[in-house]
Simulated assay, not measured.
Amino acid sequence: MKKYLILYYSKTGNSKFIAEKLSKELGCDSKKIIPVIDSLAVLFLLSLMKTGIPTNISKKEIENYSEVIIVGPVWGGLLISPLRNTLKKCIRASKNIHFAVTCETKDEEKNNKYGYAKVLNKAKGLGAKFVQTTEAFSTSLVNVDNKAWSPKRSEKIKITEENFNAVLKSRLSDFAIKIKSFEEQQINFSGNKH
């Protein structure tokens, strides 16, 4: 059985970028989540209604891995439908889940109405005992050297190799360490039971 599978949903490319970096860091497979309907408006509406949407990810596929890492965006403080559906499939497969989001929210605003903390908490609530670790990768971190810079509402920041700075690299590395540490805790726990 393979150890990790990274499943990601991405519209702007930010979640894909983070998923690919994590895949390299953990030496594991990754796969894009493709919903049957990929219209932003429809997905946003389904997300508001807390409704999942069928995707290309199957429970059987998930069962080939020990743990699953889900990466996707935050839209308006919502746990979006493709991620909700994927979480539920991982739960049905009884897999440990590590959940990460990409977002525009600054860390100091994470608890606001549209902040990422709300989404991470929803994922933990839905995943219960299966969600082991969570993390957020904010596009606000790509410009930590220029704190005065603030994008216009219409500007969407993309995380790229050029702006993937030390802060984001450290956050990604720390998330990978948390994932690996969970595995070590499980091994130690299993070893102590005998």
Rank of each mutant, 00 (worst) to 15 (best):
T133A: 04
P35L: 11
I62D: 08
K32T: 08
D174Q: 04
K88R: 14
F189Q: 10
D174L: 05
K88G: 06
E161I: 04
A148S: 14
N14A: 12
E67K: 13
I18W: 05
Y116N: 07
S39W: 03
S23F: 12
L168R: 00
L126A: 02
D145L: 06
K2T: 09
I62K: 01
H98Q: 12
I159P: 01
F99A: 08
G127Q: 01
C103Q: 11
N85S: 15
G125W: 02
I34Y: 01
L79T: 04
G27S: 14
F164G: 01
A148K: 12
H98R: 11
G27T: 13
S173C: 12
E67S: 15
G52V: 02
K158P: 06
V74Q: 07
I91K: 02
C28A: 12
A128C: 05
P82Q: 04
L83C: 04
C90M: 08
W75K: 11
G77P: 05
E104Y: 15
K110C: 13
I91P: 05
G76H: 10
I97R: 00
W75Y: 14
G191L: 15
K89Q: 11
N165T: 03
N111T: 15
E108N: 15
N143F: 10
K106A: 15
L22C: 07
N64H: 14
K3W: 03
K89I: 07
D145Y: 05
S94N: 12
Q132N: 14
V131I: 08
Y8D: 07
F130W: 06
A100C: 10
T134E: 00
Q132F: 09
V101P: 04
S154Q: 05
W75T: 07
I69E: 06
N112T: 14
E108M: 15
N121H: 11
E184S: 13
K106R: 15
C90T: 05
A19F: 09
T86S: 12
S81N: 09
L126P: 02
V142L: 10
K158F: 10
S30D: 13
Y65T: 08
G52I: 09
V167E: 02
E108R: 13
P73H: 13
T55C: 07
V119K: 02
I179Y: 01
S154Y: 04
K156N: 13
P54D: 14
G52P: 03
R84M: 04
I179S: 00
K113Y: 14
K32F: 07
R153P: 00
K158G: 08
M1N: 11
A148H: 09
G77T: 14
V42K: 06
C103K: 07
R84G: 01
K89V: 02
F164W: 04
F137V: 00
K31V: 11
I187M: 11
D145W: 08
L79H: 04
K59T: 13
A100F: 06
N192S: 11
